[in-house]
């Protein structure tokens, strides 16, 4: 990609983790900040219990809704294996943010395949710009595992140039009204928890 003002972010997880909503909120933040923005996602059969990803790109003018391999500034992975699966999209100096969680696929549960045990240590050794975050505590505090997507955004927000209020505005515009307060709370907790200390969490 020739443009340098472009920011490319990939969210990766599994069906039901709220990956697409995370992308939608980021898009809203970028649009409100005056950027052109595009996103790409996959619906339908591929979504049933499968891997789900969502590419978000923003800049002056965005053409492709897909990030090119080796072009992602950030990959935000909602669990270990999906982080590994997306690695060929990461820029050499791109950042990998990984939720410390293993979601076992059906075939692993059925004993037909194995879930690798060393993903976390492998990432620490091999991906220099990686950040592993604990989301369990925050999710417990807000009493909702469904806020995982917002919690992941809370961590990501520390890296991006948007102010906290614009994230909160976008959350208000995007999530269902009765969940707004809980989600704002979840965002705030992870934002503060990780502010200024993300890089030393590796």
């Amino acid at each position: 990609m020739v443009k340098h003002d472009m920011t490319n972010i990939i969210f990766a997880g599994v069906g039901g983790q709220g990956v697409l909503l995370a992308g939608k909120i980021l898009m809203q933040v970028a649009l409100d900040a005056g950027y052109d923005v595009k996103e790409s996602e996959v619906h339908g059969m591929a979504q049933r219990g499968g891997s789900v990803d969502c590419h978000v790109r923003y800049g002056d003018t965005v053409y492709s809704p897909l990030v090119e391999k080796g072009g992602a500034d950030y990959i935000v992975a909602f669990e270990y294996v999906e982080a590994i699966r997306k690695l060929d999209y990461l820029k050499e100096d791109g950042k990998l943010i990984v939720n410390r969680l293993a979601v076992k696929p059906v075939l692993v549960e059925a004993g037909l395949e194995e879930y690798p045990q060393d993903v976390e240590s492998w990432i620490k050794e091999n991906v220099k710009n990686s950040v592993l975050i604990d989301t369990k505590d925050v999710l417990k505090e807000v009493k909702s595992s469904r806020a995982l997507n917002i919690v992941m955004l809370g961590a990501l927000a520390n890296y991006l140039a948007f102010d906290k209020e614009s994230w909160e505005e976008a959350i208000k515009k995007t999530v269902k009204e009765k969940f707004v307060e809980m989600n704002l709370n979840a965002f705030d907790r992870m934002f503060k928890k990780t502010a200024g200390q993300l890089d030393i969490m590796v």
Binding site: R85, E92, G94, V119, W122
Partner: peptide, 28 residues
């Protein structure tokens, strides 16, 4: 990019050595 610009695919980020479990769509 590869077809028109003959861009060589390749990435400085190493690949994981092991096999990853698939996540085929499945009945709930």
């Amino acid at each position: 990019d590869m077809a028109i610009n003959q861009k060589v695919p390749g990435n400085k980020i190493p690949s994981y050595y092991g096999k990853l479990p698939g996540r085929p769509p499945a009945l709930c």
